[in-house]
Design a protein around this nucleic acid. Structure first.
Length: 226
DNA sequence: CCAGACGTTGTT
DNA sequence: GTCTGG
DNA sequence: CCAGACGTTGTT
DNA sequence: GTCTGG
């Protein structure tokens, strides 16, 4: 799945990739982005600017925000018929900007975090959906990251992963007017050998630990049972 | 019909 | 064990 | 995702 | 808003 990620790139890198996109918020980077926190996305209705939205989709029909913080991921399988996602997947798609995501691998009763990124570019764009709900007169926009079965590259770490849009063509299409079959095709289009990964310090477990150290590789623990 | 959920992950 | 907060 | 709380009363 | 369960 994708329950933690990082975005520590420069404004210049992002403006260059997205053709001088407007940055409608104070520039923020983080080595440890957690659910409920805000992060940069580009939505299909305003593709010319970066927006800073809360991670954890709250559907437009929510009166009380009871699902707040729960809908951080949306499974691509059957997404078109889920009450919370059926409208957003058709009308409210977004690009979620990252440089890597973190995944915890189970070792018996222990867990160890890994960093996963594209093997040939610093920017990792994940496929998201967004929505806006009315919280007592304020329009609050939130987003969720779509997940898929893991690529063989990272299946040894975890069985699911975020959908990664690894080309500008896919990113543009994701924000365009496309139909459901095109949407599903893009969601399943990541080829093999596009990702690399390595273990990182368990200091990232703490959401308040937002340091460059989170990107530093640590030694692999020998598997006693292999 | 109304009431209540609406999600993912992993584990049993 | 399960929920909430980050 | 993980970490940390998980409760009440009364007082500051 | 829309689906599922009773």
């Amino acid at each position: 799945m994708c329950g933690r990620y990082s975005f520590a790139l420069s404004e210049g890198q992002v403006k260059e990739h997205f053709n001088n996109v407007e940055i409608a918020h104070l520039w923020r980077t983080s080595y440890n982005i957690a659910p409920t926190q805000h992060a940069f996305v580009i939505t299909n209705d305003q593709p010319q600017k970066l927006q800073y939205l809360a991670w954890g989709l709250v559907p437009y029909w929510s009166n009380d925000g009871k699902n707040k913080g729960k809908l951080i991921n949306a499974r691509m399988e059957g997404i078109e018929s889920r009450p919370s996602f059926r409208m957003p997947i058709r009308e409210k798609r977004c690009l979620v900007l990252a440089d890597s995501y973190y995944e915890w691998k189970q070792y018996g009763t222990q867990k160890r975090p890994y960093r996963i990124m594209l093997n040939n570019q610093p920017l990792m764009v994940m496929a998201g959906i967004w929505d806006a709900w009315n919280q007592g007169g304020y329009l609050v926009k939130t987003f969720s990251i779509i997940t898929a079965p893991s690529s063989p590259d990272v299946a040894h770490i975890h069985s699911r992963m975020p959908v990664i849009l690894d080309t500008k063509e896919k990113q543009a299409a994701w924000l365009g007017n496309i139909n459901l079959s095109e949407i599903k095709r893009i969601l399943g289009s990541l080829e093999a050998n596009r990702l690399k990964s390595y273990p990182v310090s368990a200091k990232i477990n703490s959401t308040s630990y937002d340091e460059p150290e989170n990107h530093v590789e640590v030694p692999e623990i020998p598997d006693l049972f292999s």
